[in-house]
């Protein structure tokens, strides 16, 4: 594996269109969450946090899964581009993980009267998942750039993804459930309009994460190509 990105263009041609569609969808998701979906009879207006909180959490899981997939490809095919893709996916997952914790904490305060409950396994497990992936950056940047760093980062990203189903199932398996379980074996426990608003928000947040992933990836590839060009011009 080389440490540069030879002949790999920083693809960003379709990014403005993608960003425009994302902005439109996020706007639509806000309209659905506030003006289309009815107010929850039990929680009132604070339930509207659900329309962004849950899609953000699902997107964080998806980012960590994507990072693990790219890490697997790196270990299998030994192509360095997968290292960058895995790293950017972990970065996105960590951002969305932080947003999950922040929005969840605000919703918890509004609904339960507490910012955080250490007795709730599902909350603590998500925090563990978040801290695990936060430590990824400490590990990655403590190793010199090159194949060794790429391989160790990939193995770490692969190990971390095991925590995703544990965190996801904890919400369903926890005995003392305060955290609501909206999606059960009987389907979504909400009205059709609420579910539609949730689906629109889910698509919008997933597309937002994908757009940010592509923007960051394009920037990092451009950075690497420029570094290579500088080395070529100055030697």
């Amino acid at each position: 594996m080389s440490t540069s990105y030879p002949n790999r263009p920083a693809r960003g041609g379709r990014l403005p269109a993608l960003a425009a569609v994302t902005a439109l969808l996020v706007g639509l998701a806000i309209v659905f969450a506030f003006f289309v979906a009815p107010e929850d009879a039990d929680q009132g207006i604070s339930q509207r946090i659900f329309y962004f909180h849950v899609p953000i959490a699902l997107t964080a899981y998806a980012c960590f899964g994507w990072a693990a997939f790219k890490a697997l490809l790196l270990l299998w095919r030994k192509e360095e581009r997968y290292d960058l893709e895995s790293y950017v996916a972990v970065h996105q997952g960590t951002i969305f993980g932080a947003l999950t914790l922040a929005t969840g904490s605000i919703w918890a305060k509004a609904s339960w009267g507490h910012w955080w409950l250490w007795s709730e396994n599902q909350l603590v497990l998500f925090l563990v998942l978040f801290l695990f992936y936060s430590a990824y950056f400490m590990l990655r940047f403590s190793i010199e750039e090159g194949p060794r760093r790429a391989n160790i980062s990939a193995v770490y990203a692969l190990f971390g993804v095991v925590l995703v189903p544990v965190s996801f199932l904890a919400i369903r398996l926890a005995e003392n459930v305060i955290h609501p379980t909206v999606f059960t074996r009987d389907g979504p426990q909400m009205t059709g309009t609420m579910f539609l608003a949730f689906c629109v928000a889910w698509v919008a947040i997933t597309l937002l994460a994908y757009t940010l992933y592509r923007v960051e990836l394009a920037g990092k590839r451009l950075d690497a190509n420029l570094r290579e060009l500088r080395e070529a011009l100055t030697t």
Binding site: I45, A98, I106, A110
Partner: peptide
Amino acid sequence: MSSGEKYVAAAYGVVFLVVLAY
């Protein structure tokens, strides 16, 4: 503005600020 509305505004505001910072 009720306390519920304040919490909803705070949650959506956090998301907006983080994306803006990014």
